[in-house]
């Protein structure tokens, strides 16, 4: 039996997951040593570590992480809430689904960056633009997964609600939301992943702070180490967030795992 840490993550899995990054690190160092690319573009790992340390010491990293996190969280809360509410309504009401579903489904296929010119025209280039952009990014994954989860609630659960004579609030709280929760959480995880990916794009336009801004500014000043430091930090935060959401998912869905005989 494999050893598990406090969050239930298999230690063997964790070690296994480190193999590829280590391999990439070794390849990277080989490429630098063989000067396959200009050292100015592919900076050595040691330089990257030094840059990360310098950025952390100067406080720049903290300021930019906080600025970006605020945007991501705000975008998630606005876009995610709208997606959740609409997804529930579309899932439980076939009228709402038929009424608004086609438009939503059409919009879903518009690439996120294609919204940008329209957003800039409507909202200018301030903070609101970035939040709107990220909200759209958060909206669709949560809407789609909530809709899938709610519309997929087994008929027997709905009949059960009728037997217990659950009215709207209890029907939602006791039957619909718990049943759709696995799908909603998948949407939340997808949504956060997308938001961190599009953050750089959101902060490209008229920003004064944020990790995307830091990377763009590093590029303009030909400081490629700063660009790579930004990539590493965004990747690490994205990974950390996914990891934390994984723990929350396990905690929230523990009833389901117990019910299905899964081990915690």
């Amino acid at each position: 039996m494999s050893k598990r840490n406090f969050s239930g993550i298999d230690l063997k899995d964790m070690l296994l997951a480190l193999i590829v990054p280590l391999f990439v690190l070794v390849l990277w160092q080989i490429a630098v040593s063989l000067q396959l690319f200009s050292e100015l573009l592919l900076i050595p790992p040691v330089t990257l570590v030094k840059t990360l340390r310098d950025l952390a010491h100067s406080g720049d990293l903290t300021v930019n992480i906080i600025a970006s996190s605020k945007r991501v969280v705000t975008g998630f809360l606005i876009g995610g809430s709208a997606g959740l509410i609409l997804g529930v309504f579309m899932g439980i009401s076939s009228f709402v689904d038929r009424f608004i579903g086609p438009l939503i489904k059409a919009c879903k296929h518009v690439p996120l960056f294609a919204w940008m010119p329209m957003i800039i025209l409507l909202f200018g280039i301030g903070e609101l633009t970035k939040v709107v952009f990220l909200s759209i990014g958060a909206f669709f994954p949560i809407l789609y997964n909530t809709y899938q989860g709610v519309s997929g609630v087994p008929k027997i659960y709905r009949e059960l609600a009728q037997v217990f004579d659950y009215k709207s609030y209890r029907y939602l709280a006791k039957i619909i939301i718990p049943s759709a929760m696995p799908s909603i959480i998948t949407g939340v995880r997808l949504s956060f992943g997308i938001l961190w990916m599009f953050l750089v794009g959101a902060e490209l336009f008229g920003s004064e702070d944020g990790l995307g801004y830091m990377m763009t500014w590093g590029r303009q000043l030909f400081q490629i180490d700063v660009v790579m430091a930004g990539l590493v930090v965004i990747g690490f935060i994205g990974f950390l967030m996914n990891y934390i959401l994984g723990i929350i998912e396990k905690h929230v869905l523990r009833w389901q795992l117990s019910f299905e005989g899964g081990a915690l």
Partner: peptide
Amino acid sequence: VKVLNLKGSDATAAFVAGSI
């Protein structure tokens, strides 16, 4: 000052829209 990285048509559009 709040320096925003904008060039060419982006700067013009932002200026005309009153964002800067």
